Computed example of a mutant assay.
Amino acid sequence: MTALAMSPTARPQRAVLRLHRPALTVWGAFQLLVVGALLWVHLFRAPAAREDHFASYFVLTDVNNIMNFLGEVLSYVSVAVAAWAGAALTGRELESGTARLAWTQSVTPARWLTAKLTAAAVPLTAGTTLLALLFAWIWTTDQDVLVTNWSWDRVLVPAGPMSVALVLFALAVGTLAGVALGRALPALAVAAGITYAARYFFGRKWDNIWPDRHFWPVQLTATAVLLALTALAVVAAFALLGRRTDIKGAAV
């Protein structure tokens, strides 16, 4: 099936989308669930908290608990992206040999990797941007009933462009790990670990580190650094893939 998907007459991006349709379905379902939960908070839970400050407390419907939970989930989605990119997007195909089969059908290694990155980056960027805008709007609009501070990682990470940069960084790191290791499980572990470390570092409580900093300076600085690291990881992945295929081609 993979060989047919990568036939010379087909566009590589379209083939990648067909191959990873289950992952796209999961990503779409995840977005719908989060959007529904955020709108439920804004339309029902926040107004209820305003109307009755002395209402009986229930952990599963408390507006702060829901927003904190959604913020944590959104701030760590990059780790899942890194694991998927390392294992399924690149590592598994290199390990099984299906990538090399595609390269024999007029799809160069560079074009193969470009198709992989493009097909994944577009829905990830669009979806993460939507979730970031919605989360930031609801957190700002309903701030009168929320006790969280902008510098808390469960707000800082998902409420701005840093969330998009972190997901793209995860995609690049996962791709690089898959190309470098050529095996699904090791690439998954390495990519997830590196992305978790990056999320921890960039999502730390900035009010304890730089008390005079504000939301946008922190967001833009972190975003710029993450995008620079993303570019380096992508360049490294292409360079390593080209070097390995050139060496193997010369050996043959």
Score class of each variant (00 low, 15 high):
L4R: 03
A5G: 15
S7N: 07
S7D: 10
S7F: 02
P12D: 04
Q13V: 15
V16P: 07
L19W: 05
L19D: 11
L19E: 11
H20F: 14
A23V: 15
T25L: 13
L33T: 14
A37I: 00
W40I: 00
V41W: 05
H42A: 14
A46G: 12
P47M: 10
P47L: 10
A48G: 09
R50F: 01
E51F: 12
E51R: 15
D52A: 12
H53F: 10
Y57N: 08
V59D: 04
L60V: 08
L60Q: 10
F69K: 02
L70E: 02
E72A: 13
S75C: 09
Y76T: 07
V77S: 05
S78P: 08
A82Y: 12
A82D: 11
A88V: 08
G91L: 04
R92G: 01
E95Y: 10
S96V: 06
T98K: 10
R100N: 08
R100L: 13
A102P: 06
W103V: 01
S106F: 01
W112C: 00
W112T: 08
A115D: 10
T118Q: 01
A120L: 09
A121V: 02
T129W: 14
L130T: 15
L131M: 11
L133N: 06
A136T: 11
W137S: 11
D142N: 05
V147Y: 02
V147C: 02
V147M: 05
W150E: 04
W150M: 00
P158D: 04
G160S: 15
P161L: 07
P161R: 00
V164C: 01
V164G: 02
V167W: 10
V167D: 05
L171S: 07
V173N: 02
G174Q: 08
A180Y: 06
A184C: 06
L185S: 09
A187S: 15
A187G: 11
L188H: 04
A189Y: 05
A191S: 14
A192H: 12
I194D: 09
I194S: 00
T195N: 11
T195A: 09
Y196K: 03
A197W: 07
Y200G: 05
F201L: 07
K205A: 13
D207A: 14
V218I: 15
V218D: 01
L220D: 01
L220T: 12
T221I: 04
T221M: 06
A222V: 00
L227M: 13
A228L: 14
A228I: 12
A233T: 10
A236K: 04
F238C: 03
L240V: 12
L241W: 04
L241M: 07
R243E: 13
R243A: 15
R244Y: 02
D246E: 13
I247L: 13
K248W: 03
A251Y: 10
A251R: 14
